[in-house]
Amino acid sequence: MSLSGNWYLALSAVLFAIGAFGLLVRRNVLVMFMCVELMLNAANLTLVTFARMLNDIGGQALVFFVLVVAAAEVVVGLGIVVAIFRRRSGEGTTADDLHIMKG
């Protein structure tokens, strides 16, 4: 018999919290993206845990789609980052450098 699902849910809650904290605190755009990936992984772990607890394959199918959407999101997001910082002929990649629309 496998471990109770509560442990997995608690772990994914902590993982999500770490990702959210990093997203709020870090200023580097790339590291902020990685923190978004952490939060997505926490949600995936929750879905797989519920799929096991409810004996339902639907949770795993949803994780499959989340993987695809995460891949698409990273491709487009990093494309935007590259486009922005190539146009600005690159200093740092911090979010504070993007003040071009500041009044």
Binding site: L30, M34, V48, T49, A51, Q60, A70, V74, L78
Partner: peptide, 25 residues
Amino acid sequence: FVEQQANFLAAAQVIVYAGAIVVLF
């Protein structure tokens, strides 16, 4: 994932995330 009978998702996790997304990063 493997521990929770999600074997295909574990393989996809390693291939897509660790293999593609991190390399893209």
